[in-house]
């Protein structure tokens, strides 16, 4: 195989991995801090993508769509937390899973009502439509670079916030020891709402960014949700570092799977998960069971 092609695939894998990280980290933080498993997390990714479609049609640019989309998804996050998730803090996993499963049914049907069943393409911003030539025949689209850069930038911002701010400290404290944060007497109600809204916004932004690369279609939320679960299982629940490494591993496994094992491409990702489970049942950076 041509090394240049391999290089392009690797870039694609990293780009997909970084995107997955945005989604999986939200899932992992919400679970770490609030102890809630949110199946509807994938729906927020889908909603982000559809928002990108509608808003970029209205405003004429994906940039504006994202700027508008962030507050919209955050508001949606606040709303969902206030009305639904808040009931789940002291319930068992089974109830959490089922309530958020009910939310998915509702979001999916709303999507059908608002946007219908057809897939949609979202145009890239004009400035980013070109591609970098890598050889006579091969090139790499600028937008994918932009996508990776934005995801990486957001990851770094997230890292800095978690590491160096009071807010981040509280989240980390909560993720490693949930009773501790309750003992600290912090305004938990607000902290929980905010964390959940940020998680929703992260998934939403990921959806908006991915919209031009992958078409926008019904069911895209579940697909990404399951892969995010795989990422979290590999990395270890509540571990941001684990989510990062897990996301990159899955991103690369996915693209390499498509290249080397085209028949089993959709299964490759789960093979990685099975391997990790055999060696470390609580994930690479998990806290043990």
């Amino acid at each position: 195989m041509d090394w240049l092609l391999f290089f392009i695939q690797t870039l694609n894998g990293i780009q997909y991995g970084l995107l997955l990280f945005l989604i999986a980290s939200g899932l992992s933080i919400v679970f770490g801090v609030m102890g809630v498993i949110n199946l509807a997390h994938g729906s927020f990714y889908m909603i982000g993508a559809y928002l990108a479609f509608t808003l970029s049609e209205l405003t004429g640019s994906l940039f504006y769509a994202i700027l508008l989309g962030i507050p919209i998804t955050m508001l949606l996050g606040f709303f969902v937390e206030r009305f639904f998730i808040v009931h789940l803090y002291h319930r068992d996993h089974l109830q959490q899973v089922l309530l958020t499963f009910g939310l998915i049914l509702i979001f999916n049907e709303l999507q059908q009502i608002l946007w219908g069943g057809d897939p949609h393409a979202v145009p890239m911003p004009a400035v980013l439509t070109g591609s970098f030539p890598l050889s006579d025949t091969l090139s790499y689209p600028v937008y994918r670079f932009f996508l990776s850069a934005v995801c990486l930038g957001m990851s770094i911002v997230m890292y800095l916030v978690l590491k160096h701010t009071r807010f981040g400290m509280r989240i980390r404290a909560g993720a490693s020891n949930r009773t501790m944060i309750e003992a600290l007497g912090i305004n938990i109600r607000f902290l929980y709402s905010l964390v959940f809204a940020i998680g929703v916004a992260l998934a939403g932004v990921a959806g908006m960014l991915a919209a031009p690369v992958e078409t926008v279609y019904p069911g895209m939320g579940e697909q990404i949700l399951i892969v995010s679960f795989v990422v979290v299982v590999i990395g270890g629940i509540g571990s941001i570092r684990g989510a990062f490494i897990g996301a990159l591993a899955i991103g690369l496994a996915d693209v390499y799977g498509q290249v080397f094992l085209p028949d089993l491409a959709s299964v490759a990702v789960y093979g990685v998960m099975a391997g990790v489970l055999l060696l470390r049942p609580s994930g690479l950076f998990g806290r043990g069971t």
Binding site: I37, H93, I226, I237, Y270, M273, A274, G283
Partner: peptide, 21 residues
């Protein structure tokens, strides 16, 4: 054999993932 090694929330996610596979 693989998923019973895990507990709680992991078990939920792992069984879901394998079924989805």
């Amino acid at each position: 054999a693989l998923s019973v090694r895990t507990r709680g929330i992991y078990f939920i996610m792992v069984t879901l993932a394998f079924a989805q596979m």
